[in-house]
């Protein structure tokens, strides 16, 4: 299988702290790949560097065959790589539906000439986008909230809207930072089942940070384990459980 995402010796430090230390990983196209590691091991920082939210100190990132390190966030999105945030970064004073629509790709209304003189053009485009947004909201059980302000959602609903927003962007690959954190246990399985379904129906690739080992092993093809900024192991769930390094730093805690 082809690698849709590949990093070569990515490094990012904060002052003296090496948050991401020489990380080289590969993610197979169409896979669901997990990323685990204890708190502070650099998972979120790795996502931040890959998605362009932070600049790497060194190293390279390839997505879909092209180098993307050093590109600003919006161009990485354009390439088809879309991320969510561990702590939801919603547009609090906007409605749930507006949060969704803003994420859409190729908005004709981005051009000022269309905004001023051809409002029919963006209105027509938006009709389709609204349908799509509502379908995603329905899938995430957020339909009834569509006209409420995002800031009034519960923590779990905010996480769902984060994911909905990312899906709205027609990504090739999604980086999900703890998509099921703060969500009730029943909903956790529902979210991961949806993820499996989306991979099937749309051919999306998922790279997911998740703390619940059971969940991750149940739904992922491969898991990458980070510790103190480095990748210490990777493989299928079953193999990892037996890897002494992993037991030592991570599973041992349980």
């Amino acid at each position: 299988m082809a690698h849709i995402l590949k990093t070569d010796n990515l490094t990012k430090s904060f002052g003296g702290l090496l948050a991401v230390n020489n990380v080289s990983i590969k993610v197979d196209e169409g896979s669901i790949t997990g990323l685990i590691g204890p708190n502070g091991s650099g998972k979120t920082t790795l996502f931040n560097v890959i998605s362009g939210a932070l600049k790497a100190d060194s190293g390279k990132t390839y997505f879909d065959g092209k180098r993307i390190d050093g590109l600003p966030c919006h161009l990485i999105y354009k390439a088809g790589l879309v991320r969510t945030f561990q702590v939801p970064r919603l547009f609090q004073k906007m409605t749930v539906l507006d949060n969704m629509l803003i994420a859409a790709r190729g908005l004709v209304g981005e051009r000022l000439t269309v905004t001023f003189f051809q409002s029919w053009a963006w209105k027509r485009q938006e009709e389709g986008l609204i349908k799509k947004a509502l379908a995603i909201l329905e899938m995430l059980d957020l339909y009834h909230q569509r006209k409420n302000l995002a800031g009034n959602l519960s923590g779990g609903q905010m996480k769902l809207l984060e994911m909905g927003r990312a899906l709205m962007a027609d990504p090739k690959m999604l980086l999900l930072d703890e998509p099921a954190a703060g969500v009730s246990p029943l909903v956790v399985d529902k979210i991961f089942e949806k993820i499996v379904e989306l991979r099937q129906s749309l051919g999306l690739t998922f790279f997911i940070i998740e703390h619940r080992i059971e969940t991750l092993f149940n739904y992922t093809d491969r898991v990458i384990v980070m510790f103190k900024g480095q990748v210490i192991a990777e493989g299928k769930g079953k193999e990892l459980v037996e890897d002494p390094k992993v037991i030592d730093v991570y599973l041992g805690e349980y």
């Binding site: 998605s51 362009g52 939210a53 600003p72 966030c73 919006h74 999105y77 354009k78 879309v82 991320r83 945030f85 970064r89 919603l90 547009f91 609090q92 004073k93 906007m94 507006d98 629509l101 803003i102 994420a103 790709r105 908005l107 004709v108 209304g109 981005e110 000022l112 905004t115 409002s119 963006w122 938006e126 927003r165 962007a169």
Partner: peptide, 23 residues
């Protein structure tokens, strides 16, 4: 308009707006 939606997004959270593909 969609333009107006994006500028509100910038006000609420610029990094999120950029991550959703807006320059």
């Amino acid at each position: 308009s969609p333009f107006g939606r994006v500028i509100r997004g910038i006000r609420e959270d610029e990094l999120a707006t950029a991550s959703l593909g807006k320059n």
